[in-house]
Amino acid sequence: MDKNRLTIETPKGKFTKSNPIDGFQIISINEFKAIKSISSNVRNTSHKLYFDLIIFITHGKGEHSIDFQLYNYEPGTVFIIKNGQYHAWKENKEIDGYLIFFNADFYPKLGSGLKNQIIKLNNKSFLHPNFLIENNFETCIDLIKIIQSQYGLKIEQNQILKNLIHSFLTILELEYLKNHPFLNSNNNNNIFNQFYTILSNGTPLPNRNAIYFIAKLNTTYKKLNRLCKSVTSMNLKSFINLIIITRAKKELTRNKKSVSQIGYELSFEEVGNFSKFFKKQTGFTPKQYQKNQL
């Protein structure tokens, strides 16, 4: 990937935008909508990010798609989207706010404390990427504007900028945990994070059966099912199906593998079984879904 550029991938190709600080940029949503090289058609199509993104909504109400799930937003809503996830804008002329981009070039300049803070926030948000800021709404806007004013110096030489980013991220983390208090439990986090990592990472999935995950995690069906309900409001089987469908949609959107290969990597030995499963969950066959994305 080109250094100092922010890259997205859509079914119609890749788009990049240069940024003023190595791997870091804040722009308003209205500025983003005005970028001619990224058309509204691209913005409104699910596309893969090659950077981490924080979206802070200050005006407007609507829906935003992250990994093919729709989330409502209003003023004060924050979305945290990780490198490798897919998202899409739902056209809304009234929306405004800020986009905060981080890519791999930026993290080494932060020092371990700030880098770990961003990673920690990203890891918390994998299932609940949205939350609402109420008490610190104006404070966040002020911090963003001050951070923008510090663009002149490189991050390594600018302790003020590091402190400002730290303050902003600390507020986000505190507000996030207010919205999702269950994630305060480190023990629950560890078990569920391991489960989610096995289920969702990019390697071929060895098995779709809940028994496989229970054995890998040395836990019980009852405990893992209870954790799923607490974290996701879904039972264990439904959550496994959701992640499999999300992985399938990502691969179908990229349009770089055959349907049979995608099914095999998701633990379907027969492409027919994968197609039946996909249609039952989405209402479309894999090929129909893929065609709709192009």
Rank of each mutant, 00 (worst) to 15 (best):
N44P: 06
S37T: 12
Q25C: 07
I8H: 03
Y50R: 11
S37M: 03
N4K: 10
G23D: 08
I27G: 02
E31C: 00
I35R: 01
N30S: 11
R5K: 14
S46D: 14
S39Q: 09
Y50I: 01
V42Q: 04
I8Q: 07
F24R: 06
N41S: 15
D22H: 02
N44K: 15
I38P: 04
Y50F: 14
R43M: 14
L49E: 07
E9K: 13
S40C: 10
F51N: 09
S40T: 15
N30T: 06
S37Q: 07
F15W: 02
R43I: 03
Q25V: 06
F15G: 04
I26P: 01
I21F: 02
P11A: 11
I38W: 04
K17T: 02
P11H: 11
F24L: 08
I21Q: 14
S40G: 13
G23L: 10
E9Q: 13
A34M: 04
R5D: 00
K36P: 00
S18I: 05
D22L: 13
N41Q: 15
R5F: 00
S18P: 00
Y50E: 11
K12N: 13
I21N: 11
Y50G: 06
N19V: 13
T7P: 04
T7Y: 02
S37N: 13
L6C: 09
I8M: 11
N19K: 02
V42S: 08
E9C: 09
I38C: 05
N44M: 14
I38K: 03
T10C: 14
T7V: 14
K33C: 01
T45S: 15
E9V: 05
S18D: 09
A34T: 06
E9S: 14
N30K: 15
K12Q: 13
I21A: 08
S18N: 03
S28N: 02
E31V: 04
F24C: 07
V42F: 14
F51Q: 08
S18F: 00
K48C: 10
R5M: 05
K36H: 12
G13D: 08
K36Y: 04
T45K: 09
P11D: 12
G23W: 10
K36I: 07
F15L: 12
P11Y: 12
T45F: 09
K12S: 13
H47W: 09
G13N: 06
N44D: 13
L49G: 07
G13T: 07
G13H: 10
I26D: 03
K33Q: 09
S39V: 00
